[in-house]
Amino acid sequence: MTQCIRMGVIMYAILTLITGVLYPLVVTGVSQVLFHDQANGSVVMRGETAIGSSLIGQSFDDPRYFWGRPSATSPAYNGAGSSGSNLGPINPALLDAVAERVKTVRAAHPTQTGPVPGDLVTASASGLDPHISPAAAQYQIDRVANSRGLSKEQVTGLVAAHTESRTFGVLGEPRVNVLELNLALDAAQRP
């Protein structure tokens, strides 16, 4: 029995060394050399300032910007504490929250008469979703163009340029990166 315990402890120590120290160190080393930006959070720079990560959404509520999805983290888009709402489909708390969001979104987009794209009024899984659907972006074009004094064509062009289609034409969903689109808007208006 003691022999068995000794074997167990030594095997555990050796395999910990291989899988818990050697393996992550090798992966980190190779990643830092080959994929330096990605391994460190895909940080977006504006001039000298780190202004976010292209993978992590930010909260936008100014009418001059495209808005992202509702976030269940506190405060919204809190990078240090990812979370979904975990509300069930008939929970009154969910239905009230969505009704409230639909009201806000409708009020901010008087030119839109149809139903509101689902992703614009439902909380994402992570609370950090960087994307909205192209439909949700198109829904907001009039508002953003009006508040910035840009032409609708200009804004539509920027949205189109920032719309990613499915990977290899098959995988995932078409989407628009909200932070990148908003940074492009700011850049387009910079004198």
Binding site: A123, S124, H131, E173
Partner: peptide, 10 residues
């Protein structure tokens, strides 16, 4: 039903 789902996965 997009509540609790990410846009990129749909």
């Amino acid at each position: 039903n997009m509540e609790g789902k990410e846009t990129r996965y749909g």
